[in-house]
Design a protein around this nucleic acid. Structure first.
Length: 239
DNA sequence: ACCCAGGTGGCCC
DNA sequence: GGGCCACATGGG
């Protein structure tokens, strides 16, 4: 199904030296620090294609009104949710998406996240992907950040990261995810922090117009070189 | 007045 | 399997 073609994976160029260098340079990113399961899941949905601060405002609005829970979302009207999450953009859609997830959780797992996350990660990923409004990135965010499951989160930034350093070009979502998972230790902490570090790096240094003078990756002499400007560095991140 | 941000689904060819 | 489009806020 979504399993990457292992024969096509490029040689291993990605290693923990890159991870360690980014971590040393930027520090831990603290994505969803200390927050409980449903809050992280709601955050993953609300943060779709919006600045994190906007999603955070929406979460706080729900929390303030006691609506940041599965039962509360279940019993609330879509409009009632929507007006509290306006800051998250596409708010009516996202209100429906929150309700869709909560209905699924209740119907399949009696509302228990613990029971849901007891399911095998690959199987659960397929289930989440079948829900309207949960695509690959959101599913992987839920698995990794809410469920501590081994599922690397890919996105536009990870695609740009691999392309700029000449590791993979023009790969789709599952190929990128598979590449990280094949080349990193199977470790939830590393998956979690590495994704967040890449996002930070690509927003602040390896930007659309990059600040190559400040690039920590090229300082590590790991055989990686930045291909920016050499050829095409256009990014694809399609399914 | 632009631009873009921790996407997804639907429809077209 | 790719290329558009709708969704529709807030901060720089």
């Amino acid at each position: 199904m979504n399993k990457p073609n292992h024969n096509k994976l490029p040689p291993k160029k990605l290693n923990l030296r890159i991870f360690n260098k980014l971590l040393e340079c930027y520090g831990p990113r603290k994505w969803w620090p200390g927050e409980a399961g449903f809050e992280v899941i709601a955050g993953a949905i609300l943060a779709q294609s919006v600045a994190w601060e906007n999603a955070e405002t929406a979460i706080n609005n729900l929390k303030t009104d006691g609506m940041l829970s599965v039962p509360a979302i279940r019993s609330a009207d879509v409009e009632d949710i929507a007006l509290r999450i306006k800051s998250s953009r596409f708010y009516r859609q996202k209100a429906v998406r929150l309700k869709t997830f909560c209905a699924y959780l209740e119907n399949n797992y009696g509302g228990s996240l613990e029971r849901m996350f007891a399911v095998d990660a690959d199987e659960l990923r397929e289930e989440l992907l079948s829900l309207r409004g949960i695509g690959k990135e959101t599913a992987d965010c839920i698995l990794l950040y809410a469920g501590s499951q081994l599922s690397f989160v890919s996105d536009f930034y990870t695609a740009r990261f691999l392309e700029r350093y000449g590791i993979i070009n023009g790969a789709g979502y599952d190929e990128i995810r598979g590449y990280f998972m094949e080349n990193l230790p199977r470790d939830v902490y590393i998956y979690n922090e590495f994704h967040a570090l890449i996002v930070h790096h690509c927003k602040n240094v390896c930007r659309t117009s990059p600040l190559c003078g400040e690039c920590p990756v090229k300082q590590i002499g790991s055989g990686l070189k930045c291909h920016f400007g050499n050829s095409n560095h256009a990014c694809k991140n399609k399914g």
